[in-house]
Simulated scan of single mutants.
Amino acid sequence: MPLIEALPVGVDTAQWNVWGTVARVVVTDPERLSSAAAVLKAELAAVDRACSRFRDDSELRRACTGRPVTVSPLLAELVAAALTAARETGGDVDPTVGAALCGLGYDRDFAALTGREVAPAVRVFTAPDWRSVRLEDRELTVPAGVLLDLGATAKAVTADRAAARIAAELGVGVLVALGGDIATAGDGPDGGWRVLVRDRPEDPSCTVRLPAGAAMATSSTASRTWGRPGELLHHIVDPRTGRPAPRVWRTVSVAAFSCLRANTLSTAAIVRGHDAPALLGGAPSRLVTPALDVLRLGGWPASFAGLS
């Protein structure tokens, strides 16, 4: 996942574990760090209550009833983001894969999944896809039997929301990183935010400078994995098969004007496989193969300056 490599003078960071990954907040005014961390924790808690598929009391779990349900503004925003990602990728990023993930054994927070023996896969296919989910203002209708999973896009939206809120409320430059999802807001440090892009310690790495207001996302088939005898699974599901996408790419990193957009493209690129370069087009992107070869697209990283 992308890491903050070397912090310039006057910049400070806090980090903690959440959602089976690491949350980091970096600010240009160290005196505002504790307040910034509190804002991020509040955003994380609100999103967890709204859309966790691992909590029986989450608003999303209660809304998956097959009937129209009026939902909170936050859940409406999160579902709208997921449906937008599905539409923009032709269904490669589809929030209706929740049941498929459960069938693969990913039915609890990833931290609790690690080290657990997983039963053989249950092949789960539901006829509806993202186009069967209806959201009109705050009225959400999820077909009966469909379990939404907003994991990818909700994490990116949380990074975008938290960064914007911290910059606005505290008047600081800020970088928020939730695992591989990074969002920035406010005035950045001189020369931009310095970010080390690397998934696993043995992977090839590079250091880039994100301009203030830019974002980045890295999707991986190597980090969130779990297994059973003879099979190693990962969390990025191809909606057309209900199975983890083939490992054409070990990681895909994309820079964009929002973390949501970057995450949408990086996740879809994993699903798209060999056709990922056509999908990514001119987006600054870095793709790593299972053999650890690196493909750079869209002027990576020289074109970052044009994102802000």
Score class of each variant (00 low, 15 high):
residue 4 I to V: 15
residue 6 A to D: 13
residue 7 L to W: 05
residue 8 P to R: 00
residue 10 G to W: 02
residue 25 V to W: 08
residue 26 V to E: 00
residue 29 D to H: 08
residue 31 E to S: 14
residue 35 S to K: 09
residue 36 A to K: 04
residue 36 A to Y: 06
residue 38 A to L: 05
residue 38 A to E: 09
residue 40 L to M: 10
residue 44 L to F: 06
residue 48 D to R: 10
residue 58 S to E: 00
residue 59 E to S: 03
residue 61 R to L: 09
residue 66 G to V: 10
residue 67 R to T: 15
residue 67 R to V: 15
residue 68 P to S: 09
residue 72 S to A: 05
residue 73 P to F: 07
residue 74 L to Y: 01
residue 84 T to G: 12
residue 84 T to F: 14
residue 86 A to M: 01
residue 87 R to M: 10
residue 88 E to D: 14
residue 93 V to A: 06
residue 96 T to N: 05
residue 97 V to N: 03
residue 98 G to A: 04
residue 102 C to F: 15
residue 109 D to H: 14
residue 118 V to K: 02
residue 122 V to T: 14
residue 128 P to Y: 11
residue 133 V to A: 09
residue 134 R to K: 03
residue 137 D to H: 12
residue 137 D to A: 15
residue 138 R to V: 15
residue 141 T to H: 06
residue 141 T to K: 00
residue 144 A to E: 13
residue 145 G to S: 04
residue 145 G to D: 04
residue 146 V to F: 07
residue 150 L to H: 05
residue 151 G to V: 03
residue 154 A to L: 08
residue 155 K to R: 09
residue 159 A to R: 01
residue 161 R to M: 13
residue 161 R to D: 13
residue 163 A to P: 08
residue 168 A to F: 08
residue 173 G to F: 02
residue 175 L to N: 06
residue 176 V to H: 07
residue 186 G to W: 01
residue 188 G to T: 02
residue 192 G to K: 12
residue 194 R to V: 12
residue 195 V to Q: 07
residue 196 L to I: 00
residue 197 V to M: 03
residue 198 R to V: 03
residue 199 D to E: 14
residue 201 P to T: 12
residue 205 S to W: 04
residue 207 T to R: 10
residue 211 P to S: 13
residue 213 G to C: 06
residue 216 M to R: 01
residue 224 R to I: 10
residue 226 W to T: 04
residue 226 W to A: 00
residue 227 G to I: 02
residue 229 P to T: 06
residue 231 E to M: 10
residue 233 L to D: 14
residue 234 H to W: 12
residue 236 I to A: 12
residue 240 R to Y: 09
residue 240 R to N: 11
residue 247 R to F: 12
residue 248 V to D: 15
residue 248 V to R: 15
residue 248 V to Y: 15
residue 249 W to L: 13
residue 250 R to W: 04
residue 254 V to A: 10
residue 255 A to P: 07
residue 262 A to M: 06
residue 269 A to P: 00
residue 269 A to T: 02
residue 273 G to I: 05
residue 275 D to T: 13
residue 278 A to V: 11
residue 279 L to A: 08
residue 284 P to H: 03
residue 286 R to C: 07
residue 288 V to L: 03
residue 294 V to P: 11
residue 304 F to N: 07
